[in-house]
């Protein structure tokens, strides 16, 4: 009676295998529709090619997915990241256009991002509003804020330094890719080389038990929303720098959904608990590889969303225990 209960572990696939396999398949399909997909050359001192595009274009969503992973691990959700991107972009672009030095503009954008996260965190942790509803407020109101800052126009700026965040390169890699990598590493270290990761997972898996064990679950929750919004602000800076203008109406529009999708495709459960930053980034790359593939294929744009939905469905199905179970039975019969 006091021993282990019977649990079959033979059925679960090794962690991360479905995601990596899916990424590989999507890349292969891209290669089939466009034979130069893997061709990479040097253009003006930076790598240039479709594969690089996948990384470069996938960077903002990958950065969003980092923060979103942590929020989802606490059993929350953050719908406001797209709006926070727009706010941060509009803030930095406006300040730059008004002649403030770049560091000041970037710091202001980051500060605004953190403030947005604090707001979300307080609504969720202190006022105990459901995360979906709590962050919906900023999702709707935030874009309005961004429009107020930008006064309804696309704020363009002339600043090679700022533009470099989107269009520059470092060690031949596009700057957004470098920033995403740096954010992945920083987030990983902050989470795994402190006890924060454990606290986040514990809070997400059982908030009551965690609080009873003496964890400051409210502080953990607020910290996580702040990190998520900071990630959103950074992603917002990238897309703003990329087009050398802050488009309050469209910057980050619907990207919260891509970020959530990336996290889910990466295998983190919406019910909180265990999470993987790396696999969320892989999820973001799968989504972007699909987008790029569709563009390269010459497929009519009307099919874009359908193709995307089918691939996502396939990846998610590959992760469900039900299907894994079926596969197990099928293999046993064979």
């Amino acid at each position: 009676m006091s021993g282990m209960m019977q649990v079959s572990s033979a059925r679960t696939l090794p962690k991360g295998l479905p995601q990596l396999a899916a990424l590989l398949v999507v890349l292969l399909v891209n290669w089939l529709v466009f034979r130069d997909f893997f061709a990479v050359r040097l253009q003006d001192g930076r790598l240039f090619g479709s594969l690089i595009d996948v990384l470069n274009r996938g960077a903002p969503v990958a950065i969003l997915a980092l923060g979103m992973t942590l929020v989802i691990a606490t059993r929350g959700i953050d719908l406001s990241v797209g709006a926070v991107m727009a706010i941060a972009g509009a803030t930095a672009a406006t300040l730059t256009a008004q002649g403030y030095p770049l560091p000041a503009a970037l710091a202001a954008a980051a500060g605004v991002g953190l403030a947005c996260g604090l707001w979300n965190g307080i609504l969720v942790a202190i006022l105990e509003i459901q995360p979906f509803v709590a962050t919906l407020i900023l999702m709707v109101a935030g874009r309005g804020f961004a429009q107020l800052i930008a006064e309804g126009q696309i704020i363009t700026f002339v600043s090679e330094g700022f533009a470099a965040i989107g269009g520059g390169s470092f060690l031949m890699l596009p700057m957004p890719v470098v920033i995403a990598l740096a954010m992945l590493i920083v987030t990983h270290f902050v989470i795994r080389y402190t006890a924060l990761g454990l606290f986040i997972e514990a809070t997400g898996a059982n908030v009551r038990s965690s609080a009873y064990a003496g964890i400051g679950t409210k502080v953990v929750t607020i910290a996580v929303y702040m990190w998520c919004s900071l990630c959103a602000a950074i992603a917002g800076l990238i897309v703003t720098a990329d087009i050398r203008g802050a488009d309050a109406n469209n910057a980050g529009l619907w990207l919260e959904l891509d970020a959530i999708l990336a996290v889910v495709v990466g295998g983190t459960s919406l019910f909180g608990g265990r999470f993987s930053l790396g696999l969320s980034v892989v999820g973001a790359l799968i989504i972007q590889a699909m987008n790029t593939g569709i563009l390269l294929s010459g497929f009519p744009p009307e099919y874009n969303l359908i193709v995307k939905a089918i691939v996502v469905l396939a990846v998610l199905l590959a992760q469900t225990p039900v299907l894994s179970g079926l596969r197990f039975i099928w293999r046993a019969k064979a």
Partner: peptide, 21 residues
């Protein structure tokens, strides 16, 4: 021909892939 959603970001992304293709 592809959709760029009337936005600068998407216009840039789609054009990048057109150039490569």
């Amino acid at each position: 021909t592809q959709s760029g959603d009337f936005t600068r970001t998407k216009g840039k992304e789609v054009m990048e892939s057109f150039i490569k293709a």
